[in-house]
Amino acid sequence: MRTTGTGSCQWTSRVRHCAANTRFANSSPRAAAVSIINISSVSGFRPQPHNVAYVAAKHGVIGLTKVAALEHGKDGIRVNAVAPGAIDTPMLQSALHDAGINPEEFAPALSLLGRFAAGREIAQACLWLASDLSSYVTATCIDVDAGYTNR
């Protein structure tokens, strides 16, 4: 297992960024409700081989989300995370193309709906968590993965 070098920096960078957001929100005036939304990944629940730094980082984001919610709920700060599944992006399309994989044939392996997510679908989950509609939701990680983690 590699724990130094680029992988270590990737993990440290992702978790530090989430922690910095938590410290900032805790120092903000209480004029309005504060909602922190961290982005994890389905890899935070269902690890993938040969990707130790990414998987560790996404597990770390989920843990940080829960601890921050425990510590800051009394201040009215809600802390949640979203764990996206496969998102249809140019990067994903390029990776699949380079591997000689047909996206339409591969999508059902990662989605019970048989397709990749659109970026806006992840954003909509974040908007809900940021809204008053989720005012009683904290310390939660929402899977936006078309059922991938339930397989």
Rank of each mutant, 00 (worst) to 15 (best):
K58G: 03
G44Y: 05
V82L: 05
A117F: 02
H50G: 06
S13T: 15
A109M: 11
N102M: 07
S94D: 15
R23V: 14
T89W: 08
S35W: 10
R78H: 01
M91V: 07
V55M: 04
C141R: 08
K58D: 09
L70T: 09
A53W: 06
L113A: 14
A107E: 02
A20V: 08
G44E: 11
E104F: 03
E105C: 03
V42H: 12
S27T: 14
P84N: 10
S41H: 10
V52K: 04
W128K: 10
S35Q: 09
L133V: 03
Y136P: 04
L92P: 03
V15S: 04
L113H: 12
R78L: 01
P108T: 11
Y148K: 09
V15M: 07
A57N: 08
R46Q: 11
F106Y: 14
D145V: 13
V82P: 02
R23P: 02
G60N: 04
W128P: 05
G114E: 10
S131N: 08
V34Q: 12
A118L: 14
P49I: 01
R46C: 11
G147E: 11
S131K: 05
T65E: 00
P90H: 12
P49N: 03
I36V: 15
L92I: 02
V52F: 09
S27M: 12
I142D: 01
E71G: 01
N38T: 03
L110E: 08
F45T: 06
G60F: 01
H72I: 00
H72E: 00
A130R: 09
G73D: 05
A69I: 00
Y54M: 04
Q93D: 09
T22R: 00
V82M: 05
S131W: 08
T140N: 07
Q93G: 08
A117M: 05
V61T: 04
V42C: 07
L70P: 01
R16V: 11
K74H: 15
G85W: 08
Y148S: 04
L113T: 03
C126Q: 04
D145W: 08
P29I: 05
R120Q: 09
V67W: 01
A117I: 01
E104K: 15
H97P: 04
A69F: 00
G100I: 13
V55Q: 03
R115P: 00
G76F: 12
V52Y: 07
K58A: 03
